[in-house]
Design a binder for these strands. Structure first.
Lengths: 158, 158
DNA sequence: CTACACTATATGCCATGGCATCTAAATCGA
DNA sequence: TCGATTTAGATGCCATGGCATATAGTGTAG
């Protein structure tokens, strides 16, 4: 028997493989749509959306939210700033830090890209998440994320 | 009625965000373990494990399995070959193609890394996947992966 | 056999992320 | 108040992936 002991336990390596492959393909498919319609990729859309919904975020706030390094976040903001979608503003309360905000163009882009994103995402996964099993799956993933964040698991070095 | 049947309907953008953040942190945490004990990262472990379990795979087979481009796969194999873990062998049936196989060192590494990987993964997610909700979540993800592969969703260009 | 289309892989350029390191600024301790 | 530590962010080097293209080998129509 390939499987472990009991009759209902999940095979964790298989689950991990399925999860990563889903995520890869989902990201690829969403990137295709966002790139062709708005010239951005999904990670950039997520930055823009977060800044729209949390204006005044700092670089470190974004890094913590997305579980990527501060350096990578800084470079990501560089690229969005060069394209005219994000502004770095001095933080009067702490001159080391910068407050990030969208420009008007950035806000418009975030809103337009969100429509594309939401529609594409629904077309890709709505059916799979319909029903009680989908609801259960959503809660498992949500709880797991909360546990990882609480315990600072997988938070990058810098 | 995908979007109107609330009272239990999953918020898809939130689900996507949770999924991606879980996957990022999981990958980061597993990378840490594998790097410190074996000098490889998770994507390399996955290559090695697949080659151990499917000897004679071609570059294109790996690319399809992991939903990454053929070029990236070729470069990944370059790196494993330089470290002495993988061999490219001529394919007698088609001189364009190469059959990939692990060296003895590569096999030993795959086995050792698998123990580290399995233990670390269990420590990270076993609790969250215990019980009926976990089983349902695993099936949702597995079905979604199967659907993506069947429909070739998110398969990279080249 | 030849020309042409197709396939398998490799390679180059670019974008992105990790980690280490650097600077400036804030904070803490004596 | 001053030096030491910590924190925020930027930057450099390296690894990796996408996409476009190059190269070689295969198959096929005629």
């Amino acid at each position: 028997m390939a499987s472990k002991s009991n009759g209902g336990a999940v095979d964790l390596p298989s689950f991990f493989a399925d999860l990563v492959r889903c995520e890869t393909r989902l990201y690829n498919a969403l990137n295709d749509r966002l790139r062709e319609r708005h010239g951005i990729v999904t990670s950039q859309f997520e930055f823009l959306r977060h800044l729209r919904d949390h204006p005044g975020s700092r670089v470190a706030d974004l890094a913590a939210e997305f579980a990527i390094g501060v350096g990578a976040t800084s470079k990501g903001i560089d690229r969005l700033e060069k394209r005219g979608w994000v502004l770095r503003q001095p933080n009067p309360a702490d001159r080391r830090s910068l407050l990030l905000a969208l420009t008007d163009d950035g806000t418009r882009l975030a809103n337009a890209a969100e429509r594309t994103f939401t529609r594409a995402l629904a077309a890709l996964i709505a059916d799979a998440l319909d029903g009680p099993a989908g609801t259960a799956a959503a809660r498992v993933v949500s709880d797991l994320r909360a546990a990882f964040e609480r315990d600072q698991i997988g938070t990058p070095t810098g």
